[in-house]
Design a protein around this nucleic acid. Structure first.
Lengths: 153, 153
DNA sequence: CGCTATTGTATGCAAACACATATAAATGTG
DNA sequence: CACATTTATATGTGTTTGCATACAATAGCG
């Protein structure tokens, strides 16, 4: 028999999660103090960011919601506000009359891009000291693998 | 000259952050659906968890706040509610009459421990499939290093 | 010392949020 | 094809949040 990779025990998993979570909180707190998110708070930016990576026809509200830590009703109302501000649009889904497709408007795409640039610059300032290129790459690989294994189910 | 470790470029840092952030959102969404957080939501649990790891005399409200993604006034009011529920107590700081020390009550410690146990079990169910023991250890090391480099400044 | 600046927490208030539920369309079933 | 069930989003309502600011105590400085 080949060596079976021993499954991680509860303690190891909990420590990894705690560290991941705390790291995210720490970075988030730093980012929130920056002026990038005065025009659009982080949750709103994240909505635009997710829409940017979506097909041109947009995303159904429920699908968009899956990527966010926000209840469905709260997202629905956030979309109301973003529509009022002209950053996104609600389009009836031609394939399902119950559904709505949310899309970025041109103004929304412009705002996302502008904030995104500043954001990325600041991310770099905050993170680049702590890890080397190689380590950042490893971190990306590990978190990606974790997302992939958790997400689908 | 020895090889200088080349500093990560903006793109690499942004990809790592995005992946880390998205991973955290994915796991969080899974955890939130579990019944662990009916008695206490995740933010509230996190407050108790942070108090658990604190010295017996407790933590000043401001210090506690540094570990949370919550504004100082919001934390102050959350503490109000937790005091009402008998889970934490406000104690005047003997060294500084402006400050308040927040401590876990016995009931609060009991609740934290009970929820914590279930939480840890579920964390393990969610995460253990995706990464090996060794990878979890690496993930922990990398996120720890990142926290350490970001936090102090 | 007296007096301004700073620090630590709390409160008024409007905005945003979650929960339960309503509405409306699609799907499944006898 | 009627009718219950499920799916997708929206709305009513009380709670929680953040912003601005008030309050209270310490620190700093002439």
């Amino acid at each position: 028999m080949a060596d079976q990779p021993e499954p991680p025990n509860v303690r190891e998993t909990a420590l990894a999660w705690e560290s991941l979570f705390r790291c995210q909180v720490t970075i988030m707190r730093r980012l929130q103090t920056l002026p990038d998110f005065r025009e659009l708070n982080m949750r709103e930016y994240d909505v635009l960011f997710n829409l940017k990576r979506a097909p041109d026809c947009g995303l159904r509200l429920g699908d968009l919601n899956e990527h966010l830590l926000l209840s469905q009703p709260s997202l629905s109302r956030m979309i109301d506000r973003l529509v009022t501000r002209g950053l996104v649009a609600r389009i009836a889904d031609p394939a399902d009359a119950r559904a709505v497709l949310i899309t970025l408007t041109e103004a929304g795409a412009e705002v996302q891009q502008r904030i995104g640039r500043a954001h990325v610059r600041h991310i770099n300032e905050v993170m680049a000291e702590g890890l080397s290129r190689d380590e950042l790459c490893q971190l990306r690989r590990l978190t990606q693998a974790l997302s992939d294994s958790v997400g689908p189910s």
